[in-house]
Design a protein around this nucleic acid. Structure first.
Lengths: 207, 207
DNA sequence: CCGGTTCCGATGCGAGCGCATCGGAAAGTG
DNA sequence: CACTTTCCGATGCGCTCGCATCGGAACCGG
């Protein structure tokens, strides 16, 4: 068995280069040559890792999706002490990729989002991430309402306290976060405004 | 003065071709050659109408922006009889570009949105449209709350009925609509789900 | 030490891109 | 009708793209 540079490691390295280029100059800037240069590997190496450019982009989508979902999961496990409600808040803020240090991810994500509207193969990768994030949010919201309302207690005087539909709220929250992110990226909102709007939405949610 | 084919007319024709191509195959498919073919003009004509490709795209952004905002304004003027609240609902639905016949506009819009995150010149055009739509929505929401709560009546028993911040709600609604549209386009939501979520959001807004 | 296999980086190729250029058609003027 | 001016469509150019190819380096068993 001949020498073997860890292929998976290299793939991730290339995917990072793809994302960096997309962040800086858009999707069409992610050419094989520039990606190879950015990843500091030869162009042939890129071609060996991925049979075609489309396959490379497909992997990059999954790659950035993993980064986001894993960060979300980590955030969840790291803060079990907080109230579920505030955890939802923090998570939503993180999903919205509003913080400056996630600006690059946000731009990349948006680029893939637009591309996915035309190339179904990319859409599949994005949907996977969205489904996972949504499930995470829904579970968290369900926990939060459970806790704030008490477990399945039918109050006699206030019989139908409009128990939240967790799935519905998770979907709405996710869409709102995406929309706000996009508006921030094109400069139609400041980060602060977006954060405020997201916060207000959550406040009303718990009310 | 020699012959003169209406330039403005031609520009709009070309912009339509640009949008059609973007809808079908994405932004990078809008090459000068293909645009010219689709618009059924010569390539030279395109170059004379727009000095550079970037200028063409810039015009196309403004073009589609005008289409959306004008449709919104028309919707407003055509239905002054309805309650402002339901007008907001209809308008939001239309802004979300959820209906099948606006799918093409939605895809084009999303493509420009992603491009604008990288090319500031395009972002300016989008921001103009967003600002207008947002103002429209805000005014409408203000009217609706005015009507439902009565004009500036401070009720003695229910002193602070949480009068809506129209600007805030307009911003949230716009972002939500955009996010939902994107999710529908990549197949993460069905049109029906998105409509339902939008509807639910509005219901809670008026409550 | 060596032949064979496996992997690698560089180069070549055809296609398509945006843009510049050019010859000729159309319209106005004496 | 001849000349000038204005506009138009077609072609050419330089470049970059994704992908295929190839000679050589690295590593193995014997």
């Amino acid at each position: 068995m001949p020498k073997q540079v860890d292929h998976e490691e290299r793939r991730r390295r290339i995917a990072d280069a793809v994302c960096a280029l997309i962040d800086e100059q858009g999707l069409e800037a992610a050419t094989l040559r520039d990606v190879a240069a950015r990843a500091e590997v030869s162009m042939g190496a890129v071609q060996r890792c991925f049979r075609t450019k489309e396959e490379m982009l497909h992997f990059a989508v999954a790659h950035i999706g993993r980064q986001v979902t894993e960060r979300a999961r980590a955030r969840l496990l790291a803060a079990p002490a907080q109230s579920p409600a505030s955890t939802v808040g923090h998570l939503a803020h993180e999903l919205a990729l509003l913080q400056t240090r996630y600006r690059a991810q946000a731009r990349t994500w948006l680029a893939f989002l637009a591309a996915a509207a035309v190339h179904p193969a990319l859409a599949a990768g994005l949907r996977t991430s969205y489904a996972e994030l949504e499930a995470l949010l829904a579970r968290l919201i369900a926990d939060a309402t459970e806790q704030s309302l008490g477990p399945a207690a039918d109050h006699p005087l206030w019989p139908a306290p409009e128990r939240l539909d967790a799935a519905r709220e998770a979907r709405t929250l996710l869409a709102l976060a995406d929309g706000l992110t996009a508006h921030v990226l094109i400069g139609h909102r400041t980060t602060e405004e977006a954060e405020q709007l997201l916060h207000d939405h959550l406040v009303r949610l718990w009310a």
